[in-house]
Nucleic acid binder design. Structure first.
Lengths: 197, 197, 197, 197
DNA sequence: CATGAATGAGCATTCATTCAT
DNA sequence: GATGAATGAATGCTCATTCAT
């Protein structure tokens, strides 16, 4: 039965990959179920064996990609022992930007679909099932840094980073990411300073 | 004939208002022409007497609202003679936030549809047909302030402000606008400082 | 009131001319009432002051043009005294072909809409209100020619002439009218011979 | 899978038959897709599984019926060895008239839709993929008959036959087919004589 | 399990016709 | 009389979803 399970997993993954690409390129309502199944080399009806409807596949996609992104961001820091909190943040930011440059579809999808509510529900399995913010909180504690209004700070940073990556990487607006990157680092630093107590 | 013209204007306005509300609540592709006309108490066909298709009404809406918003923001400053550049910006920001608090639909619509390209095309009739950025540029000049990478700065500020207003006013995420407002002022100030030469 | 009557006639004529051109070029169901009124420089609603609906204008058109065609064909013969019946027919045929070459729209319209029933109802005001076939019958009598199955003969001749004119003049199929014309004369002659007793 | 294919064929045939009847009775633009599917006891959407749009079903219909008609006409001749060319033509003509008497809808459809261009593209699979005119040409050759302006001759004959069948069979105008038939034979004979060299 | 044929609700758009001005 | 704004029925076509095979 493990074989069967594996096969089912493969099918589901194929559908999710197809949907991912199509959603990022054409948007949800412009992507048809037929589009998705065709790209995955399956029949239309098969879709409904794996997902209740179109919105279910979208939700699963968001969850899955978000976990991956945040986990990789965490690993990006590497050996943190000789780094300040701000340096850790810079490393994470650099890692994210690089990732997004390599994989613009991912960026498009994340930016379009990742909601604040969702972020807070993400739990990184490889990190004691903690949420991204708990992980950052632990890091800050280890570095002896304290913030007021942590949530607001994270929110601002995330919004600023995601919107600037989106426009500069995907559309080179208002400038290429090479130009935007140093300014973005600085803005993030300033926002963090603003909230540091 | 003035009567007829007036009536037509009323009809068109009714359609635009209906479309505005529906677009902000359900999005463009989820809003049907029938929805719009029903809400405006008209027959489906009437829509096509005033607009070529759905995208035309959207474009007219964006243009019309953007001009209004930016013009009002400009007037918000009032007598600038005794104010610094930063103080002017704070006044504009406060005015905008107040406006958005009063009119959340407007906020929703602006945030969803106002693109960077569009902003640069907006010309304020009451201000020598200048664009918002030209107006701010003039102001900065009068105040003797200079920036590097002005465009990027404006972009970052606008994105930060619009996204924070959107989430805090409409969804109280990550906090209510009362909490976010002072922090937003400060972030904007810091961003402007970062780019001041 | 004669003035008013005249004006009404002019309007009606303008509508009929526009409709005629549009029907011949685009067909009945592809021509909209708006098309017709626009071409006649009138408002949509005005159409309904002169015609009950689209089919009424078509019927009036057919009648009017058919009468004109047949009357002119009759006049084409000129002084018949020294001509045989066949020579008269040849003259009529030549006149018709020339007329159709000059005015292809007329040809298109006639061929599409002139029914056998209609032909038999046509009465030429300038010829004692006789039908075309009565006129030809009189001519045959004067020339001392007799036919069996006159109706069938006329029908065959008319169909052959109209279809060949249509295709050769309008589409040069299967050949140009220059090539077809002599053969058409001969076929008509042969058909008449076939029915001559 | 043969079952499925068979069913699909049945469905497609049902659609084509419905469309055929409706097109002949109401014309192309007066027939809606809903009409067609209703008559075939299917849902509207099903139509689009089998045909791209309305014009595609019309094209398929014309092609299919034309090939059938011409092939049967060819077979009508039977053993030609003791027949003259004219006698062969008479047999074909008789076969066609009989066929049209039995199947007036077919006649209506053919007459309305079969264009000269199309006839020349018809290739009879059972006769070395030759066109109807090539087949007749071969026959004439075998019989030692020669024509000038063959195309024009065929065109005239076809037009005369189809229009006379149409009106006499479908509307008994100008007379019943029983009356018209012998005259039609004779006219065809005369036309062929006219072009024989 | 997988398929894809079938369904029918839903949409954008057109246009004949009416009617208030 | 003339206008053209308003109507809403009708049409071609799409697509999410179901279900028999």
């Amino acid at each position: 039965m493990g074989r069967v399970e594996e096969k089912k997993k493969l099918k589901k993954d194929a559908l999710m990959n197809s949907a991912f690409l199509l959603f990022t390129q054409k948007g949800l309502s412009e992507t048809t179920v037929l589009d998705i199944t065709k790209k995955a080399n399956m029949a239309k009806g098969t879709f409904y064996l794996y997902f209740k409807d179109k919105s279910e596949i979208r939700d699963e996609l968001i969850k899955s990609y978000s976990v991956a992104i945040f986990n990789e961001a965490r690993l990006e820091i590497g050996d943190e022992t000789k780094l300040t909190f701000q340096e850790c943040i810079h490393k994470i930011l650099d890692g994210l930007i690089n990732k997004f440059i390599e994989n613009p579809d991912l960026l498009r999808f994340i930016d379009k679909n990742l909601s604040w509510g969702l972020i807070q529900e993400i739990r990184i399995a490889d990190a004691d099932n903690k949420t991204p913010f708990e992980i950052l909180g632990d890091l800050a504690e280890r570095k002896g840094v304290k913030f007021r209004d942590e949530n607001l700070m994270y929110y601002m940073v995330i919004e600023m980073v995601s919107t600037m990556c989106h426009s500069s990487i995907l559309d080179k607006i208002p400038a290429d990411i090479c130009v935007v990157r140093p300014e973005l680092h600085q803005v993030v630093e300033r926002i963090i300073n603003q909230f540091t107590t």
